[in-house]
Every structure is written in structure tokens, then in C-alpha cells.
């Protein structure tokens, strides 16, 4: 999927803007790592790209179309082509791993198949194949609250592998994994995207991992793009400037999640 973002702004109403004018362009099949300090706007940017959040101003084009001008059904189809991976995978604790993985294709399956899959998983082989690539085959029929945090994070990745989307948006996809496993898991994700020609954007805390696995690195700070360079060009000076902690505000800064507007399950704002 092709991505074009220009002057994207997002206001949470607080003093600290979510995004303060982001420009970004990705060709189809490109792989980019986003790095930056906590609260820089990495998650906000990914959520905007995932059409989970609507930016206050600026333009967003996915495959040359503005998602917010699409009709309800077209938007749903677009979302089925976007796979999102979260730092804390949003999986219901009582759901089985196989069901959580198969949920990746809900946007493609007809409704009867989705409903039937709750009782009898409809594509066990497909789920097993996705989990196998992450060495999780033995957890197929476990419940999501019975696997470890790292395993749960990989179940979230397996869901996206099974979904096989044209755009993968990964927000700290390997934060709960040890370094070796993190590298392996990230490699699986990158290979998957490469083989299918899917675009991949991953935000990462581990700078080394980003430089090792991605050819293009985007630094984000204070809701802006600080630099956008190929991995070889990123200097130590860039990184020092990116992570410099000059913004020490008295008291703890508000958590990003609490500042997000509360949106209901139907997408309507809560009252």
C-alpha cells in the first residue's frame, strides 16, 4: 500500500500536541522503522495511519485515496487490508489463541463463517501455519490469558501474518521479547512483508534493532519528524538529539492513553 501524509496534525486539547505537522511518503512494499522518545507521537501517527484516529488537520492518503472520504463499506474493506500490531495485544483474555489468530480475516470472511468460527474454528491449518512461523504451534488451543506476555505479543503478530494485509502497522511489536527472540520475530515480520510486497511501518524502542533490520529510519520527536534517513546515514548526533531529555516538566506527564478521546465500540464518541 502506498502512503502519503502531509502536514498531519492531531490535537489532544492538552498543551502537548499529539502530532504537530507530519510529512511522510512511503512507496508500495517499503519498510520503515520509526524511533523516538516516549510520548513523541509514534503511536498517534500509527493510529492515524490505521484509521483508528482521525487527524485534526492535514491529509492522509492510502493508495491515493483519503480514507475519511470513503463510504462506510469502503472504509471497512480498506481496514481489512491494514494489519495493526500493538505493544499490548488487545486480545480478550478468555478467547483461544486459534480464534484470536483467525480474527485477522474477519474483514474478508462472510458473516456466517465468522460466527461459525466461534464454535468451530474455520481454518485451523491457516492459524497453525501463522503460529508456526513464530514457534507458537503448541499454544494453538490455549486461552489468551494462559500464555505469557511475550507469547501473547507474538499471537498478536500471528493474527496479522494470517490477515496478510497490504499495510502492516506495528507499534512496538517486540517490546516484550528478549533480544534474540525480538530480532527473530522482527525478521519474520519483515520477510513476510517483503514476500507479499506489503508496506511495513514499525515503531521500535531498540535503536540497534531498527538499524539492523530496516533500511530507512524515521526519527519522531514532539509530534514532528526529526529526521528521515537511510539506516547508514543516521549518525550518533541524530540519535543524541532525538533522545535528549530537555523537556522535563514538573510532575509526571499525562499518560498518552488517558489523553486519547474516548471512542465507543461503534466509533461514536461516548457521552
Amino acid at each position: 500500500m502506498e502512503i502519503l501524509v502531509s502536514d498531519l496534525r492531531l490535537n489532544y486539547g492538552a498543551e502537548q500536541p499529539g502530532l504537530a505537522g507530519v510529512d511522510l511518503r512511503l512507496a508500495r512494499g517499503e519498510q520503515v522503522a520509526i524511533i523516538g522518545p516516549s510520548g513523541a507521537g509514534k503511536t498517534s501517527l500509527l493510529r492515524c495511519l490505521a484509521t483508528a484516529l482521525r487527524a485534526s488537520s492535514g491529509t492522509l492518503q492510502l493508495d491515493t485515496r483519503d480514507p475519511w472520504r470513503l463510504g462506510r463499506e469502503d472504509l471497512r474493506v480498506l481496514r481489512s487490508r491494514i494489519g495493526t500490531i500493538h505493544q499490548a495485544p488487545p486480545l480478550p483474555p478468555r478467547q483461544r489463541v486459534v480464534t484470536a489468530t483467525l480474527a485477522g480475516r474477519l474483514g474478508v470472511w462472510p458473516i456466517w463463517k465468522s460466527l461459525l468460527s466461534l464454535i468451530a474454528p474455520q481454518d485451523i491449518a491457516g492459524a497453525r501455519a501463522a503460529l508456526q512461523r513464530l514457534d507458537l504451534t503448541d499454544k494453538l488451543f490455549e486461552r489468551c490469558d494462559q500464555v505469557s506476555g511475550g507469547q501473547l505479543q507474538r499471537v498478536g503478530i500471528a493474527r496479522v501474518l494470517y490477515q496478510a494485509p497490504a499495510l502492516i502497522l506495528a507499534d512496538e511489536p517486540v517490546s516484550a521479547l528478549d533480544p534474540a527472540l525480538a530480532d527473530h520475530t522482527l525478521a519474520v515480520l519483515c520477510d513476510d512483508a517483503r514476500q507479499r510486497g506489503a508496506t511495513l511501518i514499525a515503531s521500535l524502542h531498540a535503536v540497534d534493532l531498527a538499524r539492523a533490520r530496516f533500511s530507512r529510519i524515521v526519527g519522531v520527536r514532539d509530534g514532528r519528524i526529526a529526521f528521515d534517513k537511510s539506516a547508514g546515514e543516521v549518525s550518533e548526533g541524530d540519535l543524541t538529539a532525538l533522545y535528549a531529555s530537555e523537556r522535563v516538566t514538573p510532575g509526571s506527564p499525562p499518560a498518552l492513553t488517558s489523553a486519547l478521546p474516548r471512542v465507543s465500540a461503534t466509533g461514536l464518541p461516548c457521552c
Binding site: A52, R79, I82, H86, L91, L106, I111, L115
Partner: peptide, 20 residues
Amino acid sequence: PRPVEGIRATGANLLEEIVY
């Protein structure tokens, strides 16, 4: 609300959001 948003992100419709 996050699991519901996660399901919506896969392009699921309202009924699928509810049951999954």
C-alpha cells in the same frame, strides 16, 4: 475497549466486533 478496536481494525463489521 481495546480488543473491540483491534477487531474493528481488521475490517470487521459491527456484529463481528460484538461477538469477537
